[in-house]
């Protein structure tokens, strides 16, 4: 699959928060597959303002990690419920498309999704070239 997310060869690691973080080739490849799905099929990561994107990423990616680890998620408020919906969609797509997830421990999944969160924050906010992210109003 073509994609937008290949920033470096596996041995160079990935860029997070402006820093190149060394990671192994397998993790790199897995992260790329996860980022690629979000970029092609999701829209929540592209709200118009930087603070809003961070909030969306923080609302959805950790919940996705919880779901992939079989944990229950609270969904009392409409906002929680919305994040839960997006997280369920993402977790389902990952389970369906990424068979290697089934062989990972909960610890490994959490660590990988943490990396994913950092990577999406970097691509959509911290490293973004979008000059409108800091506009104060919607």
């Amino acid at each position: 699959m073509d994609d937008m997310t290949k920033t470096a060869s596996p041995t160079d690691g990935i860029v997070v928060g402006g820093l190149a973080v060394p990671i192994d080739a397998v993790t790199h490849d897995r992260l790329e597959q996860m980022v690629d799905y979000i970029m092609k099929y999701c829209l929540w990561q592209f709200n118009s303002r930087g603070w809003d994107r961070k909030k969306q990423n923080a609302g959805i990616i950790p919940r996705t990690a919880q779901l992939l680890c079989g944990e229950e998620i609270a969904r009392e408020t409409p906002g929680d419920r919305y994040y839960w919906v997006e997280a369920v969609s993402l977790a389902e797509a990952y389970r369906e498309r990424l068979p290697w997830l089934a062989d990972m421990t909960r610890e490994e999944i959490k660590t990988l999704l943490q990396r994913l969160h950092e990577r999406i924050d970097y691509l959509t906010v911290d490293g973004s070239l979008n000059e409108e992210l800091t506009v104060p109003h919607y």
């Binding site: 937008m4 997310t5 920033t7 860029v15 691509l123 959509t124 973004s128 070239l129 000059e131 409108e132």
Partner: peptide
């Protein structure tokens, strides 16, 4: 032009 190895932090036109 979206070239090999480009991502959103290196490949985005100006707009609006």
């Amino acid at each position: 032009v979206k070239g090999p190895g480009e991502d959103l932090t290196s490949c985005l036109p100006l707009g609006y």
